[in-house]
Design a binder for these strands. Sequence first.
DNA 1: TATATTGTTTGTATTTTTGCGAACTACAAA
DNA 2: TTTGTAGTTCGCAAAAATACAAACAATATA
Lengths: 116, 116
Amino acid sequence: MKRKEIGMENQKTYNEQQEKLARFAKALGHPARIAVMQFLAKQEQCYFGDIHEELPIAKATVSQHLSELKDAGLIQGTIEMPKVKYCINQENWQQAQELFCDFFEQTICKKIDCCE
Amino acid sequence: MKRKEIGMENQKTYNEQQEKLARFAKALGHPARIAVMQFLAKQEQCYFGDIHEELPIAKATVSQHLSELKDAGLIQGTIEMPKVKYCINQENWQQAQELFCDFFEQTICKKIDCCE
DNA sequence: TATATTGTTTGTATTTTTGCGAACTACAAA
DNA sequence: TTTGTAGTTCGCAAAAATACAAACAATATA
């Protein structure tokens, strides 16, 4: 992990925004997890079983994907014995969307002759 | 890969949009690749060497990350001997942004009592 | 107490990702 | 022809991701 000796004209490390954005993007980097987010958004009730029914994977795998979304902060689960209700973490999901949108604005092509 | 027997009331497979979105998200799921996209957007000249200088990783690793972005369709490289010029693939990047934005709109909370 | 329901966790296997140094390619210049 | 420049590819290693079945936990019910 070589670092810039003096000057800092190049970052030579990732900033907070880049790390956060990459974290969120990574969490969304699997079709099952995209499907979960979409499903949670449109359901009133969102129990584990319902999510599992929606996906073509074993329940253990569903549980893993949900954990990853949870670890990334995008969803949260509450126990309602004997079920577990999942839903989107609105605060963090809002933050993620803002990060993505800022990123998209940053990456609008400012060059006239982009790559011909 | 169990499939729904009859009825199709559940999808039990991922649709095109979900696959594409996940593919793009995965490509953006590393801070180095976020940094590359940002860098490419703001530079007039974007040669491999410049990108390498900007990142805290070995050139072989940079090359790999660029390949992943290229495979995902987000960037493209053209040889200008002895250099290689990289830039954002505007068409695909546009498409990616649209997919993300549609996704964000889909996942706006429509529930009054989301998760209390 | 035994059983059923609903998920999570564990164990295991396979594949993918990340990272690096060293070797290689392709050309230009000395 | 040798050397230099600019990147890519190869070979390797370690870690993370993906997936499943089986075992487990926590409660409710028979």
